[in-house]
């Protein structure tokens, strides 16, 4: 049966094998189809309790996990930083222990510190799903990106994927790099040298600071959001200059191959990293990514939450 999966947690894509990643994507195929049914709900996780434990704000990831859990018949509670006792001085471990004492079976954790999900995973019996930890990993975002590429192009191996933007602070980029290289894609990172340092070459990727040279060879362009709320001045010249040098403008989009996919993890800054016409254009698969995110998260919750833990 499923000897291909025996993990209770999903902390990152770095520790997964290509076979495990493919198994999640295949499982997501089956769950995607549930969304087309008259009754979009299956009893797979009936009786399980999932806690969305979001120490950092997030709407779309939290909503996607909440909907995924509901469609699997799990009960969901949401805890954000402001409603948790962390603000009263309780440690992360103690808060999580309290959640487990309340019989939480799955904890979806978004945290500003890299390594927080791993910390809990090794200490709790509950399944820990990383929904983004610091600048470390955001595995379900990368899995839905992989799923979308595979769905639209029929394969991942051999494709040339270009990731543009703030790589240094991006957990989405890191998880994507691990996933894409494991599945045999060629990855090029593009952005200002302050945000795309040479050290990333150790991960088996190519680095470029000239987007116009790279776009004509791309099969997929994944534009990361410019996180201006986190950006520090010394890394980043200015929004206008960024758009001029690295934004996917209408004119630049003409350099792309006609079948090149345009992706964005959202939320989009229209007119900054991508022009409106390009974001809404025929090559854009941004809304497919959202739909696929639901299927991928159902698969991850089913696989991690469904195995019996001793």
């Amino acid at each position: 049966m499923s000897a291909r999966w025996n993990r209770k947690d999903l902390v990152g894509l770095r520790e997964l094998s290509a076979d495990e990643i493919n198994f999640i994507l295949e499982t997501a195929d089956a769950f995607k189809q549930v969304g087309t049914r008259e009754i979009k709900k299956v009893p797979a996780l009936r009786g399980k309790t999932l806690v969305n434990f979001f120490i950092e704000p997030s709407t779309r990831t939290r909503t996607s996990f909440e909907l995924a859990a509901s469609r699997l018949s799990a009960d969901v509670i949401n805890i954000s930083a402001s409603t948790s006792s962390l603000t009263k001085g309780e440690t992360l471990k103690d808060t999580a222990k309290v959640l487990e004492a309340n019989h939480a079976d799955i904890i979806v954790l978004r945290h500003s510190s890299a390594g927080a999900p791993q910390f809990l995973a090794s200490r709790l019996k509950a399944s820990i799903i990383n929904a983004g930890d610091g600048a470390h990993e955001h595995p379900t975002q990368a899995l839905l990106d992989l799923y979308t590429i595979r769905e639209k192009r029929g394969k991942i191996a051999g494709l040339h994927v270009v990731i543009v933007g703030d790589i240094l602070f991006s957990r989405v980029a890191r998880s994507n790099i691990f996933g894409l290289t494991k599945l045999g894609a060629r990855v090029t990172l593009v952005g200002p040298s302050t945000l795309v340092p040479r050290e990333f070459e150790k991960l088996g990727v190519t680095i470029s600071h000239k987007i116009d040279n790279v776009l004509p060879q791309a099969d997929v362009v994944n534009l990361l959001r410019i996180q201006h709320e986190r950006q520090r001045k010394e890394y980043f010249p200015g929004i206008g200059e960024y758009t001029a040098l690295f934004g996917l403008t209408k004119e630049r989009a003409k350099l792309l191959k006609p079948d090149c996919l345009i992706m964005h993890p959202g939320p989009i800054n229209r007119g900054v990293e991508i022009d409106s016409e390009v974001a809404d254009g025929l090559q854009s698969v941004i809304l497919d990514q959202v739909t696929n995110g639901l299927a991928v998260r159902m698969a991850v919750l089913y696989l991690c939450g469904g195995i019996s833990t001793p």
Binding site: M1, S2, W5, T27, A44, A299, Y302, G306, I307, S308
Partner: peptide, 10 residues
Amino acid sequence: VGTRAELPVV
């Protein structure tokens, strides 16, 4: 689900 050692493949 959750009571079997091996999860059925969907």
